[in-house]
């Protein structure tokens, strides 16, 4: 005997009802408001994790659509087949998935490369591993090794600036502590 999976639609229905109610209230408010404010035809509604889009028709009727999120799953980029899929989607939806993924990965890589110089051994080693993985992914996205090297040197520069600022801050705090408490800080 096979068990049929049951979907509890109660919550979704409640949510839809709440959305419709809210939209109705908004429509009532818009009727009172001046015409200049009614130029905007599309409004975004957000209750939980889903992003709802309210589309106002010409005849005043409203419809709701779920808006897709521009998210790139990194695991899907790792295979050539998935890469083709991403390309196809980006062509279809006019979204630059590749550029966005590249930018996210570059930012992440700089942060991880900065952590490579951490005083904490485990953090440093883990970051090195992360840098390796992300540089691999960047290579698959078509980023040249020279660019990856440049990212690493940028991270190093940023870390050096951070260390310098940190030391200055510690010195300042130490001195202020000595001034306020009268303790010998030397």
């Amino acid at each position: 005997m096979s068990m049929q999976p049951q979907i509890n639609t109660g919550f979704a229905q409640e949510k839809l009802y709440a959305m419709a109610h809210k939209a109705q209230q908004q429509q009532a408010n818009q009727e009172v408001a001046p015409k200049e404010q009614q130029v905007e035809q599309t409004k975004n509604e957000q209750l939980t994790s889903l992003v709802w889009e309210t589309v106002d028709g010409k005849d005043g009727a409203k419809s709701f659509d779920l808006r897709g999120k521009d998210v790139v799953y990194l695991t899907s980029i790792s295979s050539a087949l998935a890469e083709d899929e991403v390309d196809a989607v980006s062509n279809r939806k006019k979204l630059k998935f590749r550029d966005r993924a590249e930018k996210i990965l570059k930012d992440k890589m700089v942060k991880l490369a900065m952590d490579c110089f951490s005083h904490n051994f485990f953090v440093a080693e883990l970051s090195k591993m992360g840098v390796g993985i992300i540089s691999g992914q960047l290579s698959m996205l078509g980023v040249s090794p020279a660019e990856i090297k440049e990212l690493m040197s940028q991270a190093k520069r940023e870390k050096m600036a951070a260390v310098n600022t940190g030391l200055k801050q510690v010195a300042s705090e130490k001195v202020l502590f000595g001034l306020v408490t009268g303790a010998r800080i030397a």
Binding site: S118, H119, V163, L167, K174
Partner: peptide, 25 residues
């Protein structure tokens, strides 16, 4: 408390120095 606070400063300094060491500066 003063001693403890100074120890904290020392530790922070040491950590930053270790980072500087790893950076080669």
């Amino acid at each position: 408390k003063i001693k403890a606070q100074l120890r904290v400063f020392k530790e922070l300094e040491n950590q930053l120095m270790t980072q500087a060491d790893r950076l080669g500066v």
